[in-house]
């Protein structure tokens, strides 16, 4: 698991670019130690699977990891680097705001 890489990693994208319903694996957060430390303590750490609940366009961003629901500001969402595992939006046929079928 590469997680310290500030180096580019194939498939690495910003969380902010994902559509509602997409899932991804968190790889790293671009930011100072203080910020990364805070996010880690809140459960946003390398290796966890996150799911986009609501990509608010220009507004804040809601994501889920496990049972947690966390709101990120726009700027923050851009700094969270992930590897997508499943595309959201129309690709999965999951309309926003309805119950997703269990896997």
């Amino acid at each position: 698991m590469t997680r310290f890489g500030h180096a580019e990693q194939p498939g690495l994208v910003s969380l902010a670019s994902l559509a509602d319903g997409a899932t991804a694996q968190l790889v790293t957060v671009q930011g100072g130690a203080g910020l990364r430390s805070r996010l880690t303590a809140m459960g946003l750490r390398a290796g966890v699977e996150v799911r986009v609940i609501h990509n608010g366009g220009r507004g804040p961003f809601v994501l889920a990891t496990g049972e947690l629901r966390i709101v990120l500001g726009r700027g923050m969402a851009r700094r969270v680097m992930v590897v997508p595992t499943r595309l959201g939006g129309s690709d999965t046929g999951i309309p926003t705001g309805t119950t997703a079928p269990p896997e």
Binding site: R38, P60, V71, L72, M76, R79
Partner: peptide, 11 residues
């Protein structure tokens, strides 16, 4: 700059 916004939404 505005501080990055992170917050938990409790159930």
């Amino acid at each position: 700059e505005a501080e990055p916004f992170v917050m938990e939404l409790p159930p």
